[in-house]
């Protein structure tokens, strides 16, 4: 519960910070609307030439797009800004200020920075999913909704752990801002169901940069085409990566010398 209280405190600080720049809310709203429009246009172009994409109906692909937006929002609100700040702190030696606080450092760096306006994506994503589901032929049962919830949480945990591991590399290599670009390039691939990609790329998107579990698997759950194996796989991977990233973080922290402080 402590984590939630801490998160709430940081969230309030972030909110107060950003309320100074209220116009940014409208800019974010415009950006989200613009991004959504062109993503939908791309889907429309593809479906002007076919009625299904590897078994995915148009409405199902729109639902996937909704999950993509939602997950981008979740990463963009807290994970990405906090990790960018962590990398910066390691380089500048200002991580000292975090480490001297009487609270678990991993928690502090994981919620150190909040970009409140990105919540727009977190709101718009589910709306898109909802609209898509209305247009779906089949009924969404309680089981589908439950699986969606579980895979979404698992996907978020996987993304968080992945970002933490990526940022922890900074303890050894210092200048790694550009590594984050790899993530963004690979994340773009998640706009489409991972199942369409050839084996080598699918493997990379599942295990190397696990965006498959962030977007495709929850989408499969909500449209009711998730196989048992992936459900269990997502939970297992989330647990493994949470532990793994924790160990890696502790290992990295030992390297920290507060170089320039």
């Amino acid at each position: 519960m402590r984590i939630f209280r801490l998160f709430f405190v940081f969230f309030r600080i972030g909110l107060m910070n950003e309320l100074q720049y209220r116009a940014n809310f409208f800019i974010q709203l415009l950006k989200t609307a613009f991004n959504l429009t062109w993503s939908l246009a791309a889907v429309a172009v593809v479906f002007s030439h076919t009625s299904d994409l590897n078994g995915w109906q148009p409405a199902e692909l729109v639902a996937l797009l909704g999950v993509f937006v939602l997950m981008s929002g979740l990463i963009g609100v807290v994970v990405q800004p906090s990790m960018e700040r962590l990398i910066d702190d390691v380089r500048q030696g200002t991580l000292d200020f975090t480490l001297t606080k009487p609270e678990e450092a991993q928690i502090l760096v994981s919620i150190g920075q909040v970009r409140v306006w990105r919540l727009v994506d977190v709101v718009v994503g589910p709306i898109v999913i909802g609209v898509a589901l209305v247009h779906l032929d089949r009924e969404i049962g309680l089981e589908d909704a439950l699986q969606f919830g579980v895979t979404l949480v698992a996907g978020s945990v996987i993304m968080y752990s992945f970002w933490l591991m990526l940022s922890t590399i900074a303890f050894w290599f210092i200048r790694i801002e550009n590594i984050l670009i790899i993530f963004h390039s690979m994340y773009e691939a998640a706009r489409w169901p991972i199942t369409i990609y050839p084996g080598w790329l699918r493997t990379a998107l599942t295990f190397l940069v696990p965006v498959a579990f962030a977007v495709t698997v929850p989408s499969e759950a909500i449209v009711g085409r998730l196989s048992e194996g992936y459900l269990h796989g997502a939970i297992a991977l989330a647990a493994a990566m949470l532990v793994g990233s924790r160990l890696f973080w502790r290992l990295g922290l030992k390297q920290y010398s507060g170089a320039s402080a």
């Binding site: 593809v46 030439h49 076919t50 009625s51 299904d52 994409l53 590897n54 773009e188 691939a189 706009r191 489409w192 369409i196 990609y197 050839p198 790329l201």
Partner: peptide
């Protein structure tokens, strides 16, 4: 990415 998308369309 887009090559694969269009190859999938061509397949169907």
């Amino acid at each position: 990415i887009y090559l694969v998308v269009w190859l999938t369309v061509a397949e169907t």
